[in-house]
Amino acid sequence: MSALRILVPIKRVIDYAVKPRVNKAQTGVETAGVKHSMNPFDELSVEESVRIREKKRAPGGVEDICVISAGPPKAQDVLRTAMAMGADRAIHVDVKEGDDLEPLAVAKLLKKAVEEEKSNLVLLGKQSIDDDANQTGQMLAGLLGWAQATQASKVEFGEGDSISVTKEVDGGVETVRAKLPMVVTTDLRLNEPRYANLPNIMKAKKKPLSKKTLADFGVSSDRRLKVLKVTEPAPRQGGGKVEDVNGLVSRLKELGAI
């Protein structure tokens, strides 16, 4: 079995617990002064990569875990977090603040990164919680012509470079099997990410972080989708409370719900 060279793309997003606010100009969501952190699904990818090594799950072993993020300089914070969780090294691709890449551009960038880093397994989150697109992993697999398994809740390694992935699908789970190289996207049930402890955070500061530009990957931040406007969804007004079950039943009847 080949040794694994895992590439883990991660994204810095507005923290999942923050309620996003649309900006006044209606061009996007207010990001200044808002808490950001690693996209939750990407934490699962980092955790899974580290566990594959720690638990010696892959017969050929894990040779390298490289995290990569394209974003403003602050994206380096999430790369450091990933290294504190156990990734070996990081690549930061500098993208001007507000010049966010679309999934297709990210997939093209990652294809180049996979070739340069000689990765044979790419572990991505199934979607980022800002754009909610759920595209990048599948697009990358398509561009590379590799096997893909999306929304993974279990990843198992077999003989002869084979990987079995249990995927979350509508109504249950489905298992597929393929050989390396492969693209896998993570779902919530895959694992529970660890918290980086202080000694590991200190150690992560010494791990290598290489800085690159979009030009290094032959990618531009030109957009195919022009955002015409971003608005708040129509607000939903609570209808008040009732005293007891009888009140609940009669109110539901009034509303025509039962």
Partner: peptide, 13 residues
Amino acid sequence: IYAGNAVATVESS
């Protein structure tokens, strides 16, 4: 987008 906390109108080229 953003878990339904914002609604984007986009034009594809």
